[in-house]
Simulated scan of single mutants.
Amino acid sequence: MTVKPEGKELVITRVLNAPRELVFNVWSEAEHLKRWWGPKGFEINVAQLDFRPGGFFHYNMQSPDGNQMWGKFVYQEIEAFEKIVWVNSFSDEAGHIVRAPFSDLIPLEIRNTVTFSENNGITTMTLSSGAINATEEERNFFEGMFKSMQEGFGATFDQLEQYLADHS
């Protein structure tokens, strides 16, 4: 069962000079994800990736100063080369959902949908993110973070764009 986000959603679209199949694959394989996912300058270590509905991606992110955070995707829907839907959370090393280490107001669960469409070898990727199972205070805080999230995802997608350029 897919849970719909509550409140407003963050929507980011990026046009990538790469075929849709390649763009989808870099979202679906651990060797790719660890090279571009996450904040700029962070090292990503994949604990586990089970890319299927009901499966999960469990990883840690280490900042340049050595701080670590764990994250987890739980995949809800996967349509090859078309769409990936997952619930994203901060987690502990065992994979249990925890509060973000930097704010108690970030919702525990964010539902994300990324879609891919291709035209002549150019892929348009659209990410939509919205809070689920969140309090009104958490939803308001999340929606207030859209500008900084756009910048953060922008930097992550810059890394994706460079990674794709190196692998097309």
Rank of each mutant, 00 (worst) to 15 (best):
P5C: 12
E6N: 14
G7T: 08
G7Q: 08
G7M: 09
G7Y: 01
K8F: 11
E9S: 14
I12K: 01
T13P: 07
R14F: 12
L16F: 05
L16Y: 04
N17D: 12
N17C: 12
N17M: 14
A18V: 04
A18S: 15
R20L: 09
E21S: 14
L22Q: 08
L22T: 15
F24Y: 15
N25F: 10
N25K: 08
V26C: 12
V26N: 08
S28P: 04
E29V: 08
E29M: 11
A30Q: 03
A30D: 00
A30V: 03
E31G: 06
E31D: 10
L33D: 13
K34S: 09
K34I: 04
W36M: 05
W36I: 02
P39M: 07
K40L: 11
K40A: 14
G41C: 11
F42Q: 02
F42C: 10
E43W: 05
I44A: 06
I44Y: 07
N45G: 10
N45R: 13
V46L: 06
Q48L: 11
L49P: 02
L49V: 05
L49F: 07
D50H: 02
F51Q: 00
F56Q: 01
F57Y: 13
H58L: 06
N60P: 11
M61D: 00
Q62I: 05
Q62K: 12
Q62E: 12
S63L: 08
P64F: 03
D65A: 15
N67M: 15
N67V: 14
Q68L: 07
M69G: 12
M69Y: 06
G71K: 00
K72W: 01
Y75D: 00
Q76S: 14
E77V: 12
E79H: 10
A80Y: 10
F81H: 15
F81W: 15
F81P: 08
E82W: 08
E82K: 05
K83W: 04
K83A: 06
K83H: 03
I84Y: 01
V85K: 00
V85H: 02
V87K: 00
N88Y: 06
S89T: 01
F90W: 09
D92T: 00
E93H: 03
G95K: 02
H96A: 03
H96P: 02
H96Y: 07
H96E: 06
V98K: 01
R99H: 00
A100S: 10
P101A: 06
F102H: 13
F102K: 03
S103P: 07
S103H: 02
D104V: 15
P107S: 03
E109A: 09
I110Y: 03
I110C: 03
I110F: 03
I110Q: 00
V114C: 13
T115H: 11
F116A: 13
S117I: 13
N119P: 07
N120W: 00
G121F: 09
G121R: 05
I122N: 08
T123K: 11
M125V: 04
L127C: 05
S128V: 07
S129L: 05
